[in-house]
């Protein structure tokens, strides 16, 4: 692609971007496929990584032969690939 073609492409794209941005402003239902679809906004987990100076009243048990088998929401995601069957401990 030569410089001139690129310049023309970019200028045209900016004009399109401006009209898309305007459309987003007026109707919030912009095309989520084409635009940058918001998957998650907010949900501030403000305590993440917070420091404090207390001792821990809960005990961390360290079982010597803990069988590591994931057992969360992963089990409901097995429709896709790869398979998410729980490991055989």
């Amino acid at each position: 692609m030569n410089t001139k073609t690129t310049a023309t492409l970019v200028a045209g794209a900016l004009a399109a971007a401006v009209s898309m941005a305007a459309a987003t402003m007026t109707a919030h239902a912009a095309d989520q496929e084409k635009c940058y679809g918001v998957s998650l906004a907010g949900q501030n987990d403000c305590a993440a990584g917070a420091h404090s100076c207390q001792g821990q009243s809960t005990m961390d048990y360290d079982p010597a032969s803990f069988k590591l088998v994931p057992a969360g929401t992963c089990l409901s995601m097995k429709d896709g690939k790869p398979s998410l069957e729980p490991m055989n401990g």
């Binding site: 940058y36 998650l40 429709d79």
Partner: peptide, 28 residues
């Protein structure tokens, strides 16, 4: 509730915080 997700679809994320709220977007 987490329904069935086709985990094989490739997705790229843009994480941003232009003001005070973090947003995570799927890129085209």
């Amino acid at each position: 509730e987490v329904g069935a997700i086709d985990v094989g679809t490739a997705e790229d994320a843009l994480i941003a915080r232009p003001h005070l709220e973090v947003s995570v977007r799927t890129l085209p």
